[in-house]
Nucleic acid binder design. Sequence first.
RNA 1: GGAGAGAUGGGUGAGUGGCUGAAACCAACGGUUUGCUAAACCGUCGUACUCUGCAAAGGGUACCGGGGGUUCGAAUCCCCCUCUCUCCGCCA
Length: 424
Amino acid sequence: MLTIKQITENKEAVLERLAVKNFKNPALVDEIIELDSNRKKIQFQGDSLQAELNKIAKEIGGLMKSGKVQEAEQLKKRNTEIKEETAKLNQELAATEEKLNSLLVQLPNLPHASVPVGKSAEDNVVVRSGGEIPTLGEKAIPHWELAKKFDIIDFELGTKLTGAGFPVYKGKGAKLQRALINFFLEEATAAGYREFMPPLMVNEDSGFGTGQLPDKEGQMYHVTIDNFYLIPTAEVPVTNIFRDVIVSSSELPIKATAYTPCFRREAGSYGKDVRGLNRLHQFDKVEIVQVAHPSKSYEILEQMVAHVEGLVKKLGLPYRILRLCGGDMSFTSALTYDFEVFSSAQQRWLEVSSVSNFESFQANRLKLRFREEADKKTMLAHTLNGSALALPRIVAALLENNQTEKGIKLPEVLVPFAGFEYID
RNA sequence: GGAGAGAUGGGUGAGUGGCUGAAACCAACGGUUUGCUAAACCGUCGUACUCUGCAAAGGGUACCGGGGGUUCGAAUCCCCCUCUCUCCGCCA
């Protein structure tokens, strides 16, 4: 969430930035500022009274020791009065803080200056593209049919075991998953990311820290008996490693990577978008996360984009990189690049990665700070993350784009990991 | 799941009602000493909010796992919760 300081010190700029995210509610911002100023007043009153109370309590202690019981009793009465007043103020303070917090949490992150204005995905800007779209013509088979033909992914079986959106990978299909995961992890660790294997369920605090709670509660599977949430992305556990942490500026940037399955309820999705591997309730993904110094975070964002670009290039997939417009960005992000690969039987672009800078928005929730070596001051760090990469749509594109007479031809880079060249 | 023990600052760990935001030691940082390293010695060494101030700086409040209570006053007493450890049971 935004810090109160950000809001009170730059109200006009904040409103202007929020408008880019199509968040137009100046009254809410005014209310926040008002509540904050109330909070300060109440706290000052309460603190002053408490100071008096503490002082008197000490005096009583002294009097009791020297046997001046009557004088002590007099003072006790005074303190009892003060206590009633502080109790009232404390209640007021708690109520004000709670209200303030509930409003603060409703404000999305401020978009970066480079974020295009726009309402929907149509207003996203293509930054660059690469690779060649293969011309397969009319005979191109969509991946869900190829998956069936080669018996590598079984959607019906998954439905039997669990439900729609939980496919079963079989034979070379399963091995391909493993090859991709290993390939992505090797690339990430070679780029200096430290590998983690986090829990796949998180508690409420973690869900709040990265911004899934309370806004997107419905997106996650909730294990109510223990009040845990199945992770929708490794971002949640990996970023929360740094919750309530103060690191030295010399340790930045911190680079972490993790492979995890991801679980998403995707309530309300339907139609051709969800066909085959296009949208699943459980899928595999390798995530990269960085904790960065605020002065470096945008430079780092570009590095992360370059890393992901390297992956799709090595896989030989036709891709494009989009800068998301204000209306299409997530609640928590300040700047997001989406990667899409072209899947040539479906004749459409599929999103395979989303790389974002959250600036201090998550860090504020996480209480993730760093200490500047030079002046010893603590500041909120910046957090970034990106998919590198999400598997299902990569597999969809690979199957469709690489279909040949002899079967599905694997990209060179995957052959050592998979142990075969063709799915046939 | 049953029984018991515990949770204090970066770490170890003292502290059972006031002089304790918290001893001591270790680590870390700054300095003195030193040919260098080490040792020794001196100093610094939590976080958040807030008030005064242009600032430098100074003051206040809160925090000893979390929440509530007793008391003029709580790390210390009471209640609830969470977590950790040990033993038993179960088990990959």
